[in-house]
Amino acid sequence: MSQFLSNVEPNIIDDEMLQKAIEEKCPEDMEHLMKWENIDFKAVKELQLGFKTILQIDNLWPFECLTKLQLDNNVIEKIEGLESLVHLVWLDLSFNNIEVIEGLDTLVKLQDLSLYSNRVSKIENMDTLQELQIFSIGKNNLTILEDVIYLRKLKNLRTLNLSGNPFCNHEDYTLFVVAHLPSLVYLDFKLVRESTRACTVSTSLLRESQRKSVLRCGSRGKEPWWSCCSQSDLFQ
């Protein structure tokens, strides 16, 4: 959506926008109690701020008990201003103009993160997100397939969407990702078959693959090790 908003005046997250977002989550008969000066910010668990042409993430620090934050379809260029939201479990930053993964260090409870349709060119700065289970970073500018290896740090990652990135055109893309992230259950909206695990190699060869872009299987001459597996073995 962000690419279609270039001619729209960007907004900031101000008191008026936040109050409207809170009121939308409250029953109609409670709205009279939702005067800005009386709001218990710690009681607010969810905020929906999508489609607001927001340029900069700001003024969210009072909502320290938020568990779900929706900031999709804006014109955000940088991940910032989230440091105090340490209870976030779900964060949607899809369809923005973000170029770098950053500013997430304190979100240690995060389980679901979407950066779909942004401008990210490298997977990085996610070391503290050890609770992350679902990560969508499809339709970005990821070109180096080996960068996927970074995600091995996220031991609880089970669902990953990388579709629409330039490196997905690599002929061995699927096999490479599955081999290096053996705990994945879903890749690009498809269930990974257990039989795919048979296409992985020994730990020593996996370590070698981190130094080389392509593994060679000694018993098959110069053919890549994954050539013994067909694409039909990967998904069901």
Rank of each mutant, 00 (worst) to 15 (best):
I13F: 02
C26Y: 08
E24I: 07
E23L: 12
E194C: 14
W61C: 08
V100C: 12
L69M: 04
E37N: 02
S94H: 06
K109S: 01
S227L: 14
W36P: 04
S84L: 10
K139H: 14
A179D: 10
K78G: 05
W225N: 14
V89G: 02
T203I: 15
F4S: 12
I12A: 15
C228D: 13
L175H: 10
V148L: 06
I39N: 10
V100P: 05
N11H: 13
E31G: 13
L145D: 03
D29T: 13
E80D: 11
E194I: 14
I137Y: 06
N11Y: 05
T174M: 10
L91D: 03
S230G: 14
K42C: 08
D105V: 10
P27I: 10
T67Y: 00
L55Y: 03
E131S: 05
S213P: 04
Y150D: 02
F63Y: 06
Q133L: 02
P27K: 15
W90R: 04
F4P: 06
L184P: 06
L66H: 04
I54H: 01
S6D: 07
L107F: 07
E131T: 03
P27E: 15
D127G: 09
K122Y: 07
S117V: 10
V214M: 13
C217D: 12
L33M: 11
F167K: 12
V201T: 06
V178G: 01
R216P: 12
Q111F: 01
Y150L: 00
Q56I: 12
G218S: 12
L5D: 08
Q70P: 05
Q133M: 09
D40T: 00
L33P: 00
D29E: 12
K20N: 09
W225H: 13
R216E: 15
H180F: 11
F167V: 09
F189M: 10
E80N: 07
S114V: 08
S84C: 01
L49H: 01
V75T: 04
N7K: 15
P166A: 09
C199Q: 14
S204A: 14
N165K: 04
M34P: 01
V108F: 05
K155S: 15
R158G: 02
N73H: 07
S195G: 08
R220S: 13
L113R: 00
G218P: 07
N38I: 05
Q3D: 13
G221W: 13
N118V: 03
E64R: 06
